[in-house]
């Protein structure tokens, strides 16, 4: 096992950040921690990278315990914190060289690892890191985390604040890195990215809701989901919540996702109910479940 977490708990003053978390990540796996802000993802990353000590439980990375093997872990993992953490007053090239040097290696030695990514930012290699766009900053940070050929890569919300095109490119890179045998633990608040992981852990308020492959998590979803749209979205939500057999109601893009608890649900009945209450342009259609739906279901 590349990463192994056993009953980890951690609390700060009054907040229970992590509550009895356990999971394992196999070697070469792309494992996603999916959850909203404040779920405890960053705390978990910091415990695994030896930056914080858990109150309870134990964890190991590549066989090294996070307490006793602190130095071994620090020497061998790649870590990209959630906040952009490179030197803004150093150029792209200087940042990369610096991180290679402190890991006792050179850029040339491990260039093959970062080549795909680095060619995209190479035209700006003499620009200061602080002057890069959000997407390029993240690519540079990934290069810096990779330059010493880590066995495990910890990426804490690497795509937050990055445009959709760069996000897509970033995930393609992660896939390629995975093929090179690197174990990747990545966290994200974006549910659409979860589908790209081998396995994911849904996490909320410091607890793991479910761990499985994205497909299985979606498949486990019991209820039929309906996309509902109407002229007045605000009124629509309150009306749906008031519907006698409503199970769950939450906004989802331009639609509202609705699930029903009774077995004899008919679209026409709901349509009539909404129309009766003065809504126009009503659309009701079944839709396949996504990870977000699974998350909402589990979180309730």
């Amino acid at each position: 096992m590349s990463i192994s977490v056993r009953n980890i708990s951690k609390s700060f003053k009054k907040v229970q950040a992590l509550d009895q978390i356990s999971f394992e990540v196999a070697q070469g796996e792309l494992f996603g921690l999916i959850g909203p802000d404040g779920a405890g993802k960053t705390t978990l990353f910091r415990i695994l990278t030896t930056l914080l000590v858990a109150d309870e439980g134990s964890a190991s990375v590549f066989g090294f315990d996070v307490i006793d093997g602190m130095n071994d872990i620090r020497n061998s993992v790649g870590y990209m914190p959630g906040k952009f953490s490179l030197y803004q007053d150093l150029t792209v090239e200087e940042n990369l060289t610096f991180f290679a040097t402190i890991f006792d290696t050179t850029v040339a030695e491990n260039y093959h690892l970062i080549e795909d990514i680095y060619v995209q930012i190479e035209p700006f290699k003499n620009r200061r890191a602080g002057a890069l766009s959000g997407g390029m900053k993240q690519k540079l940070a990934l290069c810096c985390a990779l330059i010493h050929q880590p066995k495990v890569l910890f990426l804490d919300e690497p795509t937050t604040g990055v445009d959709p095109v760069s996000r897509k490119e970033f995930w393609e890179m992660l896939k390629r890195l995975q093929q090179k045998g690197i174990t990747i633990l990545v966290s994200t608040p974006y549910m659409d990215e979860a589908a790209l992981c081998d396995r994911i852990a849904l996490i909320q308020d410091g607890k793991i809701l479910d761990i499985n492959s994205p497909e299985e998590i979606v498949a486990k979803h019991q209820h039929v989901i309906y996309d509902v749209k109407a002229s007045n979205p605000h009124q629509l939500i309150s009306l749906l919540k008031a519907y006698p057999t409503a199970h769950s109601v939450y906004p989802f893009g331009e639609y509202v996702h609705y699930t029903d608890q009774s077995g004899e649900f008919k679209q026409e009945d709901l349509h009539a109910y909404l129309a009766h209450n003065g809504l126009k342009e009503i659309v009701i259609q079944p839709t396949p479940a996504t990870i977000e739906d699974a998350f909402m279901e589990l979180a309730n």
Binding site: T49, Y79, P81, L86
Partner: peptide, 13 residues
């Protein structure tokens, strides 16, 4: 403050 200490700590330095 800039968060770079986090990376420096998780390094062989």
């Amino acid at each position: 403050e800039l968060g770079t200490m986090e990376i420096l700590l998780v390094s062989p330095l």
